[in-house]
Design a protein around this nucleic acid. Structure first.
Length: 501
RNA sequence: GCCCUCAUCGUCUAGCGGUCCAGGACGUGGCCCUUUCAAGGCCAAAACACGGGUUCGAGUCCCGUUGAGGGCACCA
């Protein structure tokens, strides 16, 4: 059974690169019919940002990525404050995966295994102060050497286990640690260049290196899929697996996502969290599709670009994840968003659009307005790249418009009197229309064009401006039908009046 | 400074020694469709970083150069 995990630290906003790594992990697991869970790595008390753990869970919730384990979603949603997040489910395990899923709640485990390593001679106690270590580093630098801690460098060896101290791992002075990375291929590191890492800090918290090994093993992780920057510390982890006598998981280090300037993605690059994108009107289907394509392609001659989540699960494979970093550029995201918006059922589009148009001041407080809103969906669906673009396309259906200026009511290559005449005739045609629907309306208007010897563009431009106050709208007659006869005639009357003098 | 990784159109990528004078998608330009705007259709411009090898043959393998990114914490 394949089991993967995403292990973020709750130290701030989760950006797109992290979400992509998580997405790859999730897809890899689901493709194999396996499990995916989240573990919060909150072992640095200083960097902890209240509420960020919760935000991370909400991100996955919103994306529709279901977890087979992790800090409880339901509990998170009920919390009133961002001050803290709850731990694992009560029994400490979920769907067969042992919890807790928050590292700060697993402290005794790390302590226990660190002591175990000392007993077997794979680790030792040390108590150099940060200042002392700093000095040692500076001295090494002065000698133009890379500073690596080694047991013999300890300033004191008579360490009282009951006094604050750290536990460091031993590293062989010779030999090479090799492994096969699922994405990078064969990689080798010389042990002599590996630091004797602190595993357990003086405050009793583990470092990442100990925690990730203990947890991934205890929680049955089969594929450790993580960001590129962990590649150089993998030898430490492999050494630990060896000391513990545990079989290591498969490793896959996914390349970074960079900004358009080629630098690592950060706040400077604008909208980089999933919630930023959501607020800019991107829908989850598009975000997932886009992220999947950032570094992955189906390969094998398959040139598909648009994917549903189900298709991604079916086709995703770690061996088609590229080994070079990708630049986050939202051109393709815009396009994919349009594609996925068009695939939404109209009622679903309406549901997702409502918060956006309400944010823009459109009030949909009556069943009648709700109905108009829903009826407008097919008209605007293929015109949206993001959900923020709907308002200017439909606002005139819900609120009154100012009377257009004269020049907007004069058709292209037309005189004022002809335009006025056309407007009056159009009004009469609409008034006498038996059924106020788009098809008969268009037929009547086209007949009017013939009668007046006008091009459709000429007549329709005048009517569009008169009825909507805009020169760009969704298809005219469908729009007018939704507006309704009464309002349409009233607006035409005002336009006629404006043009009359 | 030391270590590691990466390098195909502007961007995301296909390519796993010959079928590649390099394919697809976005974006860009043009044309068509058309009541505006979109959507859609068609066409076009656009790339194997550089230098050495290996091989009958290299985008594909090896080495080097250059460039980019990452790591070298009691941060993850």
């Amino acid at each position: 059974m394949v089991r993967t995990r995403f292990a973020p630290s709750p130290t701030g906003e989760l950006h797109i690169g992290g979400v992509r790594t998580a997405l790859f992990s999730w897809l890899a697991a689901k493709h194999a019919g396996g499990q995916f869970f989240i573990r919060l790595e909150d072992t640095d008390q200083r960097r902890y940002v209240p509420g960020s753990g919760r935000r991370i869970l909400e991100t996955f919730d919103w994306l529709g990525i279901e977890l087979d384990g992790g800090p409880d979603h339901a509990m998170l949603r009920q919390m009133k404050t961002d001050e803290d997040y709850p731990g694992a489910l009560e029994d400490g395990s979920y769907r067969g995966i042992p919890g807790p899923f928050v590292q700060s709640q697993r402290l005794p485990l790390y302590k226990q295994w660190a002591e175990w390593l000392i007993e077997r001679g794979h680790a030792y106690r040390a108590n150099e102060t940060p200042e002392e270590l700093d000095r040692m580093r500076k001295e090494a630098e002065a000698r133009r050497e890379t500073f690596l801690f080694r047991e013999h460098m300890r300033l004191r060896t008579d360490i009282d286990p009951n006094q604050p101290h750290v536990i460091r791992m031993r590293v062989p002075r010779e030999g090479v640690t090799r492994f096969h990375d699922l994405i990078k291929g064969d990689v080798a590191f010389e042990n002599a260049l590996v630091d004797e890492q602190v595993l357990l800090k003086a405050d009793g918290y583990p470092t990442y290196h100990l925690a990730v090994v203990v947890d991934d093993h205890l929680q049955g992780v089969t594929h450790t899929i993580r960001a590129d920057e962990w590649l150089p510390s993998t030898p430490k982890h492999l050494l630990l697996y060896q000391y513990f006598g545990w079989e290591p998981p498969l490793f896959a280090h996914v390349p970074n996502v960079r900004g358009e300037d080629g630098r690592k993605l950060s706040k400077r690059h604008g909208a980089t969290s999933v919630f930023d994108l959501r607020d800019k009107g991107y829908i989850r289907e598009a975000i997932i599709n886009f992220l999947a394509l950032l570094g992955w392609a189906p390969g094998g001659g398959d040139e598909q670009n648009v994917f549903t989540v189900e298709e991604l699960i079916e086709k995703f494979s770690l061996d088609h994840v590229g080994s070079s970093p990708a630049v986050f550029s939202d051109d393709k995201l815009d396009w994919l968003n349009g594609v996925h918006i068009r695939r939404l059922p109209p009622d679903e589009l309406a549901r997702r659009l409502q918060p956006f148009v309400e944010r823009d001041g459109i009030v949909l407080d009556t069943p009648e307005k709700q109905d108009r809103f829903r009826r407008a969906m097919p008209l605007i669906q293929e015109r949206l790249k993001t959900l923020t673009e709907a308002t200017p396309l439909i606002d005139f259906l819900f609120q009154d418009i100012p009377t257009p200026p004269k020049d907007a009511l004069i058709g292209p290559k037309m005189e004022q009197h002809l335009s006025l005449y056309a407007l009056r005739e159009a009004r009469r045609a609409l008034e006498s229309l038996p059924a106020f629907d788009d098809k008969p309306m268009e037929a009547a208007m086209r007949a009017l064009c013939d009668e007046l010897q006008l091009k459709p563009t000429q007549l329709f431009t005048i009517v569009r401006n008169a009825v909507t106050g805009k020169s760009v709208t969704p298809p005219l007659f469908g729009t007018i039908a939704i507006l309704g006869r009464e309002a349409a005639l009233e607006r035409l009357d005002r336009a006629i009046a404006a043009l009359s003098h």
